[in-house]
Simulated assay, not measured.
Amino acid sequence: MNATINSFAILFRETLQNSRKEHIGLDQEIKVLGHYVEVEQLMAQKPFECNFDIQTTPDPEEILIPPMLIQLFVENAIRHGILKGDKNGKLQIKFRTTKTHLHCSIIDNGLGIFKSQNEKSKTDHQSMALTVTKERLESIASIDTLHITELKNEDGSIEGIKITFKIPLLTDY
């Protein structure tokens, strides 16, 4: 219990600090995402693993991004995909750069966005978070920058979700 409270306190403090900034370093965003995933792992009813794949030039501490842009996708992957699925959860968060853009991918092995949305529509709660984040991404990058793809096995069953987007590469030098 103390580990959960401590991890949540760290996450809460970092989120508040970052929310007041126009840009933060990618390294800071990765750190906050790591703390967020840790809190979710501590609270989850079943275990899941997460790994980060970072292939950027320049280094993550030199890349600037808007704060609180990626966490929503990670949260959705965990809560609406991995934790509702029946297999051991796997989450991968990838960052790579080209000369002009930072590319981000969030890949999970959850039950799939359409199945999750169908189950969600049975309640009165409909989240606006994805719509707002999509609009935010489009104002930063361009229309049609966000792509959500269901990953399928050879037999057509859902293997998970892959969310990708890119934003213009901004550095602090």
Rank of each mutant, 00 (worst) to 15 (best):
G34Y: 12
H35T: 00
H35E: 09
Y36I: 01
Y36V: 01
Y36P: 02
Y36R: 01
V37A: 08
E38F: 11
E38Q: 11
E38V: 15
V39S: 02
E40G: 00
E40Y: 09
A44N: 05
Q45C: 14
K46N: 05
P47N: 14
F48V: 07
E49N: 09
C50Y: 03
N51C: 12
F52I: 02
I54A: 11
Q55F: 02
Q55D: 07
Q55V: 11
T56A: 02
T57K: 07
P58E: 08
P60I: 04
P60S: 00
P60A: 09
P60G: 05
E61V: 03
E61K: 11
I63K: 02
I63S: 01
I65Q: 00
P66Y: 05
P67W: 00
M68H: 14
L69T: 12
Q71I: 08
Q71L: 04
L72C: 09
L72P: 15
F73Y: 09
V74N: 04
V74C: 00
E75F: 11
E75C: 09
A77K: 06
A77P: 02
I78V: 07
H80E: 04
H80M: 05
L83K: 03
L83D: 14
K84E: 08
G85Y: 03
G85P: 00
D86Y: 07
K87S: 11
K87W: 10
K87A: 15
K87Q: 14
N88V: 07
G89T: 06
K90F: 09
L91M: 04
F95M: 13
R96I: 05
R96Q: 09
T97F: 04
T97L: 06
T100H: 07
T100I: 06
H101T: 07
H101Y: 06
H101R: 07
H101S: 03
L102T: 02
L102N: 03
H103S: 08
C104G: 08
S105K: 09
S105L: 04
D108E: 03
N109H: 12
G112I: 06
G112L: 05
K115W: 14
S116C: 02
S116Y: 03
Q117P: 10
N118M: 03
E119Y: 15
K120P: 08
K122Y: 06
T123A: 15
T123Q: 08
H125E: 10
H125L: 10
H125V: 07
H125N: 12
Q126F: 14
Q126W: 02
Q126Y: 07
S127K: 02
M128H: 15
A129V: 13
L130V: 12
T131W: 08
V132I: 09
T133E: 13
K134L: 02
